[in-house]
Design a protein around this nucleic acid. Structure first.
Length: 438
DNA sequence: TTTTGAGTTGTTCGA
DNA sequence: GTCGAACAACTCAAA
């Protein structure tokens, strides 16, 4: 076991759960004077806010950590996993070690910013610097901005500048293979069990990412058809950092620009949340906070359960409920249906997705819900109401996807439509019009 | 400062 | 079946 008082550096893993091409980790290992001690904290502030002790995402993280720990064992090191409030964990660690520096990759969500501010200030009182790096996105908030220095709120000009800057990037790969001796050697230790964290085993199974080259190549043509395996399904890996965004962007850039655009949207919404944190609770466009939502709880339940009687909507919700994932085309359809056909507040839908999606990310989920509801920056105009049956005809013409998730769709056991489509469409347009012109 | 062009993913209607 | 226009102004970005 490590000596008391040994001089070390700490690398703090958060949303970057990988050893390869990890900017913060790479930089920590550059300083050969002090070995690097890898740390992960199960943040009890976050864990205690979860609605159930049966949580697929916590289980998933736990499995990734187990896998990371095995990799570290092969390097003669070991992952330390702590359970607690980050400031308290660091307080404790500073009594056990002489910490020379703490390295971590930047996180841009409001909660994370506040947490890191507290940790930084605690460490500062002990003479320790918290070093942060850009790793989670290609360009951090503030890097792609207008000539006057203000942030973009329209995607297209943002993406133009993003691409221009991207072409000028040196594209360094932050490999850490050569730094084996710089790890802090410890006796192989096991990470705390899931039960010790206060959670139960779920059905989720972590498998390491692999890049689906042919899907990326054909992405433009196949991405909209939910019965086709035409999307990369890498969102979950981007969420937890089990894949490097730089590696993925580099590959996609030479192969498919539609796919690259989707990665740019990820950076775009991250900087929207950063510069306009009010979107967490309010519409990006304030006028849209005046919409008189119906918020019928019985109808909301039917949407959640996938029993609205609109097959594509129901198929999507059942896929979400059963797998923790939904095809992107269908995400748009169910979101539009909830906000416009049922006139349920987009925040309800956003919150439901947040509990169910394995790839849940605050900035992307919020940005896309506000897009669907028409209240976000650069959003769909309010009178653009997705027609759930037209969408099904276009993108699931032989009902392959629908039948996969609703076996009873052609029987009289299937739900009758929750609302008549044309009526609901007109009601939505009227309600929106009233709010934004009033 | 003013002007100009443009804005993720659709639907419906009528010629 | 196919195609273009309307849907509704408004705000953003850049010159």
């Amino acid at each position: 076991m490590q000596k008391e008082g040994q001089d070390i550096q700490v690398f703090w893993f958060r949303r970057d759960l990988r050893l390869t091409d990890n900017v913060g980790l790479y930089n920590a290992l550059q300083d050969k004077r002090y070995p690097v001690f890898p740390l992960f904290i199960f943040d009890t502030d976050i864990l205690s806010s979860l609605p159930s002790t049966y949580d697929k995402r916590v289980d998933y993280i736990h499995q990734i950590l187990t896998s990371l720990n095995q990799e570290l064992h092969q390097l003669g090191s070991s992952l330390m996993v702590e359970i607690g409030k980050p400031t308290e964990v660091f307080e404790k660690l500073t009594t056990q070690f002489t910490i020379k520096a703490v390295h971590t990759n930047s996180d841009y969500e409001p909660y994370a910013i506040q947490r890191d501010k507290e940790v930084r200030s605690l460490l500062h009182t002990k003479g320790i610097t918290l070093h942060t790096y850009t790793d989670q996105v290609i360009f951090a908030p503030g890097e792609v901005i207008k000539v006057d220095g203000s942030p973009y709120t329209i995607f297209t000009p943002f993406s133009k500048i993003w691409l221009r800057k991207y072409e000028q990037l040196p594209h360094q790969e932050y490999t850490t293979d050569a730094y084996k001796k710089n790890w802090l050697s410890t006796l192989a230790q096991e990470i705390p069990s899931l039960a010790k964290c206060g959670f139960k085993k779920t059905s989720i199974q972590y498998t390491p990412p692999s890049i689906p080259y042919s899907i990326i190549d054909n992405y433009t043509d196949t991405r909209n058809f939910p019965a086709i395996n035409g999307t990369s399904t890498l969102s979950i890996h981007l969420r937890f950092g089990t894949i490097s965004i730089r590696q993925l962007a580099r590959i996609a850039f030479t192969r498919n620009h539609t796919y690259v655009s989707e990665l740019i949207w990820r950076d775009f919404f991250m900087q929207i949340l950063y510069f306009f944190p009010h979107v967490q609770t309010n519409a990006f466009k304030p006028k849209y906070d005046a919409i008189e939502w119906r918020n019928d709880t019985a109808e909301f339940s039917r949407w959640c359960n996938g029993t609205t009687g609109y097959p594509l909507v129901d198929a999507g919700m059942r896929q979400l409920n059963e797998t923790g994932w939904m095809h992107n085309r269908v995400r748009m359809v169910v979101a539009s249906f909830l906000c416009k056909h049922l006139l349920v507040d987009w925040r309800w839908g956003e919150a439901y997705f947040a509990t169910k999606l394995m790839d849940y990310d605050l900035s992307a989920n919020n940005g896309n819900w506000q897009w669907a509801a028409g209240c976000g920056c650069d959003a769909a105009p309010y009178f653009r109401v997705f027609n759930p049956t037209e969408q099904a005809k276009k993108f699931d013409s032989n009902s392959e996807y629908i039948r996969q998730w609703i076996p009873e769709v052609d029987t009289n056991k299937y739900a009758t439509p929750i609302v008549e489509r044309t009526f609901a469409r007109n009601r939505a347009i009227e309600t929106y019009k009233k709010a934004i012109s009033g």
